[in-house]
């Protein structure tokens, strides 16, 4: 009897502190944030008017909003696969019996701790038109130098590469933790059956990594859709808005233009987009994952 009651109560006890502490500081501000999208609030005054759907109507005719949406999608489309492939590859490489795994793991972690303002300085130098290392390298192949960050065609791509650099280390560590968790008995059994490396990868490793991949895809998607820091430091959304992402625009609207209501409306749209994409990821990648408790 006690056993049954305990099992009924246990999950609520387990989730309670984590859920409470999280929602306590996010739920009400999020609801207020949604509410603000129906006002013309300017942050600095307690007065505001309800304006109904006017902020949303304006979004439809705002070219910069359209541009920033497209930029955000382009950023995400390049960044997400890049991050997943490179971090998985690194984790697989490190999960072999190489020496110095500890050393490499530490090195790969460094981008996560290097302050982004400092890292940006170095990336700006890498992309520098005159003495940047990138132009030096492509020069070896006979290609003409470019002004990477000041060119509408290359600015966003340059920032994507930096974004991958920034995100790979962390996700590699998560993959590695998952790989370390896979029981060796699976591999031993497969080896006895004569399965080669690729077969083991395809039929054992990747399927068992599915929950981790789902997690990484969803969190990377959320991160990509909210990209802001590099644009803010390196390009200020330029040249000619070619790196203006939606959160960059939201930030400008809220804190520079004092149009918090409008910023909130953009945030709600971004929220809905993120929700839909996450749901698709979930349905698509969540399939076939071994959810014992379902």
């Amino acid at each position: 009897m006690w056993y049954k009651i305990q099992r009924k109560i246990a999950p609520y006890v387990f989730i309670f502190p984590g859920v409470l502490f999280y929602l306590m500081v996010t739920f009400i501000p999020a609801i207020i944030g949604v509410g603000l999208s129906f006002t013309n609030w300017s942050i600095i005054t307690p007065k505001f008017r309800w304006v109904g759907l006017r902020n949303y109507e304006r979004l439809l005719t705002d070219d910069l909003f359209k541009t920033s949406l497209i930029n955000t999608f382009r950023y995400a489309v390049w960044l997400i696969p890049g991050v997943i492939i490179v971090s998985l590859l690194l984790a697989l490489l490190l999960n072999t019996k190489v020496r110095g795994i500890t050393f490499f793991r530490t090195i790969y972690y460094l981008p996560m701790v290097t302050p982004i303002a400092v890292a940006s300085v170095i990336w700006m130098w890498i992309y520098d038109r005159r003495t940047g290392i990138l132009n030096y390298i492509i020069g070896l192949f006979g290609l003409a130098p470019r002004n990477w960050l000041n060119d509408i065609k290359t600015a966003l791509g340059s920032i994507v590469v930096m974004g991958i650099w920034l995100a790979v280390g962390g996700n590699m560590i998560i993959y590695l933790a998952a790989l370390q968790g896979i029981s060796r008995s699976y591999y031993e059994a497969a080896e006895i059956d004569g399965a080669g490396y690729w077969q083991r990868l395809r039929f054992i490793t990747l399927p068992l990594l599915k929950p981790t991949t789902l997690f990484i895809v969803i969190t990377t998607t959320m991160g990509a859709l909210r990209a802001f820091a590099q644009m803010n430091i390196m390009t200020q959304g330029g040249p000619l808005n070619s790196t203006t992402t939606i959160v960059f625009y939201i930030f400008q609207a809220a804190f520079t233009d004092l149009r918090m209501g409008y910023a909130a409306a953009m945030s709600v749209v971004l929220f809905l987009i993120t929700l839909v994409l996450t749901f698709i990821d979930w349905k698509f990648l969540g399939k076939g994952v071994n959810y014992d408790a379902e």
């Binding site: 000041n150 060119d151 509408i152 330029g238 040249p239 000619l240 808005n241």
Partner: peptide, 10 residues
């Protein structure tokens, strides 16, 4: 800045 860039870059 954008107006100048429109001539120089675009």
């Amino acid at each position: 800045r954008d107006a100048i860039s429109k001539v120089i870059i675009a």
